[in-house]
Design a binder for these strands. Structure first.
Length: 562
RNA sequence: GCACCGUUAGCUAAGCUGGAUAUAGCGUCGGUCUACGGAACCGAAGGCCAGGAGUUCGAAUCUCUUACGGUGCACCA
C-alpha cells in the first residue's frame, strides 16, 4: 500500500497534479500528529486563502475510509492517520508471504549492473583502506540483485605495472621460495618495501628489465609473477569468504593488455588524439579539465587507457544498464576524464558509467604508510573483532553452543557494519577503540535484537502458540511504530540503490531494531491473552525476517542465539 | 592558483529533491529488575546546524561569499 499516493488521489487542488501532491506528502515530527502530513502553504497563492483555512477546508472535505482513519488540520498542515489494523494486515501478510524475499522487487529484471570494486593489488596485503570499497561494493552487489538486476562483480586486479619488475628484482636478491611460502603475502610485501627503501640505480635498471621480460613473455619472469598472483588470490579469497564477498570476474589490468591498441586507434581515427610534450593526449580544456593522458612519450599505455578499454569491453560483454566504479574520491578527476573521453568517442552509454566515490581512511596519527610500517592490516582488525566477540560471548552466555561460529558472525558483522553505517563520502579515522565498541548503533545491537526475537519465537513454538497476521483490534503505539518501520524496508532498499548508499539500509536496521526493542520492553508477548499474543508473535516474526533481510544485504549474518 | 568534497551537541554521526519543537549513538548524571534474553528500556543535561549575505510564507537543506579541513590538477595506479 502506497499511502502517499492514496492520499494524493483524495486531494484535489486546482493546478496541482496528483504526483506533485504525492511528492509533497511527508512524515510529521511527532506520530501523535499523524502518520502522514501535507503542508498546504504552497496552495495559498493559487487559492488565495491562508494555508490554515485551506488545510481546514480539505480536512472537512475528506471522509475517513478503511485506509485513512482520521484527517485533521493543524497550523496549515493536513494530518492523516492511517488505519493501523489495515496496516498490520497488509505488512504482516506481505512479510509472511515473501519471507527472505521481503524488500526485494523485480524492477531491475533484464538489466545488468557491473560493479567494479575491491580491486586488489597483486602482491600487497589487504589493509584497512581496502575495506570500504570491498564492503560497499559487496553491499551494492546484493542490493542490485535483490532488486532484480543482474549484478556482475568485477575485481579489476592491479596486476600490471613496473612494481612487478621491482618485486622480482627484490626476490632475486633477497628472497627465497621457502621463506615466501612460509611468510605468504606479507613476506612478498616486505620484499617490495625493502626494494623501495634500499634499491640503487643498478637494481632499478634490473627492475625495468624484469618488467620488460614479463611483458615479452619470458617464462621465468612470468612464472614468478603468476606465483605472486596466486599467493595473493589465495590470501584475498580467505578474506572475501569471511566478509561474504564474491566476484564474477577477476579481469584485471593485465587482461586489457591486448585491448588497448584498438582504443588508441579509434581515438586517432576520431581525431581526438593529440601530441603534447611527446605524449598522446585527449585535450579536455573545453570541458574545464586537464588533458587525459593516453600514451606516455615512450609509447606505453597509462591507467586511463586501460580504463577506456575496460569500459568498452564491459559494455560489449555485459551490455550493462549501469557500470559502477566503487573507488575512493581521490580519483574523481580521473573518472570524470575517462567518462568524458568515452562520450567524445560517441558512446552514448558513457552516461551510464558511475563513479561511486567514498571517503578516505586514515589513522589517529595521520595517513597510513606501508613504508613506515604505519598500517592496519584487515585480517588483524577482523581477528581482533572476532576475538572480542568471543570474549563477550564467554562472559554473557557461557553455555552457548557453537561459540566460534557465533563469534565469527558477530565480529565480522561489526567490521562490515562499521564501514557501512555512515555516508560513504565521509572520511574515516580508524581506531581500534571504535571498531571494538559493540555498544549503541552497531550491528551487534541489531543481531542481539534478532536473537531476542528468535528466542521468543522458539518458546512460542515449544508451547505451540498460534501466530496470526490478522488482528481484530487496533495495534497500540509501539506496535504501530514498528509496523511502519517494517513497511519501509522495500522503499529503503530502492533508495539505497538509487543513491548507491548502503548506509541507508544499515540505518534502517538500527532504527527498526530500536523500535522492536521498545515494543519488546513495553509489550509482553508470550504472556498476553491469546489473540493479542498471536498478533504479537506475527509481528515479532516479521521483524526478525525484515531485519535478517536488511543485515543480509550488507553481508552480515544473524545468529539465532548469541 | 584552479576545481571538487566536507564543516550539525564534549566526541562520532543522521537529517540535504526546502516544511511543524534539529535526531540518534558514545560519554556524563539519574531512573527501570515478578529477566518472553539487561549486549535492553526510560529520563535529564548538552545546539547561533562554521561565519556572513541572499531567495522564500518558511532554510541545517537552495544560491553567493568568507574561514577552516581534505582531495585532485601530465607521462604512477
Amino acid at each position: 500500500m502506497d499511502y502517499k499516493q492514496y492520499i494524493a488521489q483524495k486531494i484535489d487542488v486546482e493546478g496541482v497534479s496528483s504526483e506533485e501532491i504525492a511528492s509533497m506528502v511527508n512524515i510529521p515530527p511527532d506520530p501523535a500528529m499523524g502518520d502522514y502530513a501535507l503542508p498546504c502553504f504552497r496552495f495559498a497563492k493559487a487559492l488565495r486563502k491562508s494555508p490554515v483555512q485551506i488545510a481546514e477546508a480539505l480536512a472537512s472535505a475528506i471522509a475517513p475510509d478503511e485506509v485513512i482513519a482520521h484527517v485533521s488540520a493543524l497550523n496549515g498542515y493536513l494530518n492523516f492517520k492511517v488505519n493501523k489494523q489495515g496496516l498490520a494486515a497488509d505488512v504482516l501478510g506481505r512479510i509472511a508471504r515473501e519471507g527472505a524475499a521481503y524488500g526485494s522487487s523485480r524492477e531491475g529484471a533484464g538489466k545488468t549492473v557491473c560493479i567494479d570494486y575491491s580491486s586488489v593489488n597483486i602482491a600487497k596485503p589487504f589493509h584497512i583502506g581496502h575495506l570500504s570499497t570491498t564492503v560497499l561494493g559487496g553491499a551494492l552487489y546484493r542490493i542490485f540483485n535483490f532488486l532484480g538486476y543482474k549484478a556482475v562483480g568485477i575485481n579489476h586486479l592491479g596486476d600490471y605495472g613496473t612494481q612487478f619488475g621491482k618485486l622480482i628484482a627484490a626476490y632475486k636478491h633477497w628472497g627465497d621460495r621457502a621463506a615466501v611460502e612460509k611468510g605468504g603475502i606479507h613476506a612478498v610485501n616486505d620484499l617490495y618495501v625493502r626494494f623501495n627503501n634500499e634499491a640503487d640505480e643498478a637494481m632499478e635498471a634490473e627492475a625495468r628489465e624484469y618488467f620488460r621480460l614479463i611483458e615479452s613473455g619470458d617464462k621465468e619472469a612470468n612464472d614468478l609473477f603468476e606465483w605472486f598472483k596466486s599467493l595473493t588470490l589465495a590470501y584475498v579469497e580467505t578474506i572475501y569468504d569471511r566478509l561474504h564477498i564474491r566476484f564474477d570476474s577477476y579481469a584485471g589490468e593485465r587482461f586489457y593488455t591486448d585491448k588497448m591498441a584498438p582504443v588508441v586507434a579509434a581515438l586517432k581515427e576520431k581525431g581526438l588524439l593529440k601530441e603534447s610534450n611527446g605524449a598522446q593526449i585527449v585535450d579536455l580544456e573545453a570541458y574545464g579539465m586537464p588533458p587525459c593522458l593516453i600514451l606516455r612519450s615512450d609509447g606505453a599505455s597509462l591507467y586511463a587507457t586501460r580504463d577506456l578499454a575496460a569500459a568498452i569491453y564491459r559494455k560489449k560483454t555485459y551490455d550493462f544498464y549501469k557500470c559502477l566504479y566503487v573507488v575512493a574520491y581521490q580519483q574523481n578527476l580521473h573518472f570524470k576524464q575517462v567518462f568524458k573521453v568515452l562520450e567524445l568517442m560517441g558512446y552514448d552509454w558513457a552516461k551510464d558509467l558511475v563513479h561511486v566515490a567514498y571517503g578516505m581512511v586514515s589513522l589517529e596519527d595521520g595517513a597510513m604508510s606501508t613504508r613506515k610500517g604505519k598500517v592496519v592490516w584487515l585480517e588483524d582488525v577482523i581477528s581482533r573483532c572476532v576475538e572480542k566477540a568471543r570474549t563477550v560471548l564467554e562472559e554473557k552466555n557461557p553455555s552457548l553452543e557453537h561459540k566460534d561460529a557465533v563469534a565469527e558472525t558477530v565480529g565480522v558483522g561489526a567490521v562490515i557494519f562499521g564501514a557501512l553505517y555512515n555516508n560513504k563520502i565521509k572520511d574515516i579515522v580508524f581506531s581500534y577503540d571504535k571498531a571494538l565498541n559493540f555498544d549503541g548503533e552497531t550491528s551487534v545491537y541489531v543481531q542481539y535484537t534478532c536473537a531476542r526475537a528468535s528466542s521468543v519465537l522458539a518458546k512460542a513454538a515449544e508451547a505451540k502458540f498460534a501466530c496470526a497476521e490478522d488482528f481484530d483490534a487496533a495495534p497500540n503505539e509501539q506496535e504501530a511504530e514498528l509496523l511502519k518501520a517494517l513497511a519501509d524496508l522495500p522503499q529503503t532498499v530502492r533508495e539505497a540503490a538509487e543513491k548507491y548508499e548502503p548506509s541507508l539500509v544499515a540505518r534502517w536496521c538500527v532504527d527498526t531494531a530500536k523500535l522492536f526493542n521498545k515494543f519488546y520492553f513495553d509489550c509482553k508477548i508470550l504472556q498476553a491473552e491469546p489473540s493479542v499474543r498471536a498478533f504479537r508473535l506475527a509481528l515479532t516474526k516479521a521483524a526478525l525476517t525484515a531485519l535478517t533481510n536488511g543485515l543480509g544485504l550488507l553481508g552480515i549474518g544473524v545468529p539465532e542465539k548469541m
